[in-house]
């Protein structure tokens, strides 16, 4: 459903391309993860999808249409994005905040329709934030806020949802719950694309993994195919081993220690 086609991006003044011809696709009914070290171009992919940076080549294609040719409001009805960081300028009630996910579907003056209200209620329930609905966004914990943001994206009722490091501030339970939610969304037929540093969770929950390094796709496929010790060690430039999770059999990465030289 979302295809990145030979995408090239170079930031002004940068010595090398942030994306040097990345090509891969994320399909409906699956969770696709993009992993890779810091600076490998993961967030640039998301920014390219949003149209926030100009492309030096290639395109992002959604359901056969290039994003640059799509009107913004149509794109917003096809793909929802949970960006890496977000802070509203002024606090809102959680329900009002989640309702803003309906923006691409609403006219200027008309009050919320039954469909709007149903989508918001469904989003609050799916992200398990119904109990927070009347809280203000500035009173939420990091984990609550992250789930509320996902609810806002769900209220957008799009076929595809893209999340940039959604578990960055979450504890183990919320991290697991978040990935369970993403898996459930994929089972419900949505296209889920998640950028993550949590390789072990990615290995357990996702259907496809795309490994980026220096703006290029260096490995792509099922988690067992991508999560190979030699590949990851080379890409992350750190000694590590990949074993099997004894409980679930998924590949598990264990970074090894490499002592820092003594500080005098």
């Amino acid at each position: 459903m979302i295809r990145f086609d030979n995408l090239r991006v170079r930031y002004p003044g940068a010595t090398r391309e942030a994306l040097g011809g990345a090509t891969f696709a994320a399909e409906r009914g699956a969770v696709t993860a993009v992993v890779g070290p810091n600076g490998s171009g993961k967030s640039t992919l998301v920014r390219a999808l949003l149209g926030r940076i100009s492309l030096d080549g290639g395109s992002v294609v959604i359901d056969g249409e290039r994003t640059v040719d799509l009107p913004r409001d149509r794109l917003a009805r096809m793909v929802a994005v949970v960006a890496q960081r977000e802070e509203p300028a002024f606090p809102l009630a959680v329900r009002d905040y989640v309702s803003l996910g309906r923006f691409p579907w609403q006219g200027a003056w008309a009050p919320p329709t039954a469909a709007d209200r149903a989508a918001v209620a469904h989003a609050l329930a799916s992200a398990d934030v119904e109990l927070l609905a009347s809280r203000r966004t500035d009173t939420l914990s990091g984990g609550e806020w992250q789930r509320v943001r996902i609810a806002r994206a769900l209220a957008q009722a799009t076929d595809a949802i893209v999340l940039d490091e959604p578990t960055a501030f979450l504890d183990i339970a919320h991290e697991m719950a978040c990935f369970e939610l993403l898996a459930a969304l994929a089972r419900a037929g949505r296209c889920v694309l998640v950028v993550s540093h949590q390789l072990n969770l990615v290995a357990r929950f996702t259907d496809r993994v795309v490994l980026l390094s220096q703006g290029m796709v260096v490995a792509e496929g099922a988690p067992v195919e991508v999560m190979r010790g030699d590949t990851l060690e080379r890409v992350y430039e750190w000694p590590l081993v990949v074993s099997r999770d004894p409980a679930v059999g998924a590949p598990t990465l264990v970074p090894l220690r490499k002592p820092h030289p003594p500080i005098l």
């Binding site: 920014r47 949003l50 926030r52 994005v81 509203p88 300028a89 923006f103």
Partner: peptide
């Protein structure tokens, strides 16, 4: 301004999110 008030709500969420909701 009243006509565009919802856009103003979305704009206050910040650039990336506003853009993802379809606002230039």
């Amino acid at each position: 301004l009243g006509h565009r008030a919802r856009e103003l709500d979305v704009l206050a969420l910040g650039g990336d999110t506003a853009e993802s909701l379809g606002v230039d």
